[in-house]
Simulated assay, not measured.
Amino acid sequence: MTTANPTPPPKAMFDLSGKLALVTGASRGIGESIARTLAAYGAQVIVSSRRIDGCERVASEIRAAGGKAEAFACHIGEMAQIDAVYAHVEKTHGRLDILVNNAAANPYFGPIADTDLGAFQKTVDVNIRGYFFMSTQGYKLMKRGGGGSIVNTASVNGVIPGPFQGIYSITKAAVISLTQACAKEWAPDGVRVNALLPGITDTKFASALVNNPQMMKLMGGKVPMARVAHPDEMAGAVLYLVSPAASYTTGVCLNVDGGYLTA
């Protein structure tokens, strides 16, 4: 067994200069914060989401702040669009160093037995099939380039299913399993795969919870820090996972949840 190169000096531990990062679901919320943070630490970021206008806004603001970014619309629930974004990455850049699978779907909130086929299929198509094929195509590019880092946004609901979030919780449990399976298989090729498990975060995506006083009382009482997270509080964890500081870290599911899973 060989030993990897020594850990870089502290100032270089989070340096992403020269790295190309693709972030899905990056037009708002957690994904936007991740895209801005990776760019601030030197990465060239492809800001991706379903709507090009939101992607263009984030990318232009990153460029205005001195970073490098471009926008590319991709709905990861559509296989043709996954193929299209990777065709663009390969043709334009010829490589990929960082992939953050952050886009997600949660169209149904209610009793699990009342989940209709449409809501079931949409959630599975984005949260499982989308993450799977985004990851496998990203891995192939990274392997050819000598390695890389993938971070999947899962959820604390993948560990403890959230109330009235049955199918969403099931898919996030699958994301955790996907992360661990890929980490084990792809480590020899220099591709690290980890997961971020956010607690309840103040985003439009989570507005059904954040704006529901009864749900907040129910869930807030289980969070030791007694508050919801800000999207920026997720970005630092992702920065660590994709950076040289985490060069020996793979298969990890990092809870960023105010202590929820330990309560």
Score class of each variant (00 low, 15 high):
Gly118Lys: 14
Trp186Asn: 02
Lys143Val: 13
Ala246Trp: 05
Ala246Ser: 12
Asn157Lys: 02
Met134Asp: 07
Pro231Gly: 03
Ala87Phe: 00
Lys140His: 07
Phe109Lys: 14
Gly236His: 06
Lys122Tyr: 00
Ile128Leu: 11
Met1Arg: 13
Leu38Cys: 10
Gly110Asp: 06
Val210Cys: 13
Thr136His: 10
Phe120Asp: 07
Ile46Gln: 05
Gly31Pro: 07
Val223Ile: 15
Gln44Ser: 14
Ala263Pro: 00
Thr92Pro: 03
Leu218Ile: 10
Asn102Leu: 11
Tyr240Cys: 11
Tyr168Glu: 12
Gly199Gln: 02
Ala69Thr: 09
Ala187Tyr: 01
Lys172Ala: 12
Gly94Ile: 02
Ala181Cys: 14
Gly258Asp: 08
Val100Gln: 13
Leu254Glu: 05
Asp232Ile: 15
Met216Glu: 01
Gly258Arg: 01
Cys74Leu: 07
Tyr248His: 08
Val256Ser: 13
Gly166Cys: 13
Thr153Gln: 11
Gly138Val: 11
Glu61His: 08
Thr3Met: 08
Met142Gly: 01
Arg129Met: 12
Tyr240His: 12
Val58Met: 10
Asp53Lys: 14
Gly251Cys: 06
Thr153His: 04
Ala87Leu: 09
Tyr260His: 03
Asn101Asp: 10
Thr153Lys: 05
Val228Thr: 11
Ile62Trp: 02
Ala69Met: 11
Tyr139Ala: 15
Thr249Lys: 10
Ile52Phe: 05
Trp186Tyr: 01
Ala40Thr: 03
Phe120Arg: 08
Ile176His: 12
Val175Ile: 15
Ala64Arg: 14
Val175Leu: 10
Thr179Asp: 11
Val126Ser: 09
Ser27Met: 08
Lys172Pro: 11
Met219Gln: 14
Gln44Arg: 15
Asn255Gln: 11
Asn194Tyr: 02
Ser17Val: 03
Ala195Thr: 09
Phe133His: 02
Met219Tyr: 03
Tyr240Phe: 15
Ala208Met: 07
Ile176Arg: 14
Gly77Lys: 14
Asn157Ile: 04
Lys222Ile: 01
Asn255Leu: 04
Thr201Arg: 04
Glu185Asp: 15
Ser135Trp: 10
Thr153Trp: 06
Thr24Ala: 05
Ser48Met: 07
Thr24Met: 06
Ala64Gly: 02
Ala208Val: 14
Gly67Pro: 08
Ala43His: 06
Ala12Val: 08
Ala208Asn: 10
Gln81Ala: 14
Ser27Glu: 10
Pro244Cys: 04
Thr136Met: 13
His93Ser: 00
Gly118Phe: 05
Ile150Asn: 13
Tyr240Ser: 09
Val256Trp: 04
Lys19Ser: 05
Ile62Ala: 08
Thr7Lys: 12
Phe132Asp: 06
Pro6Gln: 14
Glu61Pro: 05
Phe120Tyr: 14
Met216Val: 09
Ile34Ala: 11
Glu61Gln: 15
Tyr168Leu: 07
Leu239Gln: 05
Val124Tyr: 06
Phe14Lys: 04
Arg192Phe: 06
Ser27Tyr: 03
Leu20Met: 06
Cys253Thr: 15
Thr123Ala: 13
Val58Lys: 14
Val159Asn: 12
Arg63Ala: 13
Asn194Leu: 06
Gln44Leu: 09
Leu254Gly: 08
Gly66Asn: 08
Gly54Leu: 09
Leu218Cys: 03
Ser247Trp: 01
Thr7Pro: 01
Ser177Thr: 15
Ala4Pro: 12
Gly259Asp: 04
Gly29Trp: 10
Ala174Val: 10
Asn194Lys: 02
Pro213Ala: 12
Gly166Glu: 13
Val252Cys: 11
Ala183Glu: 03
Pro244Gln: 02
Gly145Trp: 05
Ile170Arg: 06
